[in-house]
Computed example of a mutant assay.
Amino acid sequence: MTRKITFIDRILSSQFFKEALDKGEDLMANNKYGLLNLVKRALQKVNETAEQSNLSVVRLLNHYIVLFSQLIKAYVQGTYRKLPAVTLAKIAAVLIYFISPFDFIPDLLPIIGFTDDLALVLWVGKSIKQELDEFEKQM
Rank of each mutant, 00 (worst) to 15 (best):
F98A: 05
R10T: 11
E48Y: 09
N47D: 15
A119L: 11
N30A: 14
D116V: 04
E134V: 14
L36A: 00
K4N: 11
F135W: 08
S56D: 13
L118H: 04
K82G: 00
L36F: 00
P101N: 08
E134D: 15
A89S: 13
V124Y: 01
V76F: 01
Q70H: 13
N47S: 14
N37K: 15
A74V: 02
L71S: 06
A93G: 01
I105T: 07
L95G: 03
T79Y: 06
E134T: 13
L55R: 09
H63W: 03
I96S: 05
T2Y: 13
K4Q: 14
D103C: 07
M1L: 09
F68I: 09
L95R: 03
V46I: 15
V66S: 09
A89M: 06
K129Q: 13
L38H: 00
L38A: 00
S13L: 07
F135I: 10
G24F: 04
E51D: 11
I96L: 10
R41K: 14
L120C: 01
D9F: 03
K126Y: 12
E48N: 14
A85K: 15
Q77W: 00
Y80C: 03
Y33D: 15
V76Y: 00
K90H: 15
N47K: 14
V39S: 01
A29R: 15
F114I: 06
F98D: 04
V124A: 11
K23G: 05
F135Y: 12
D22K: 13
K32R: 14
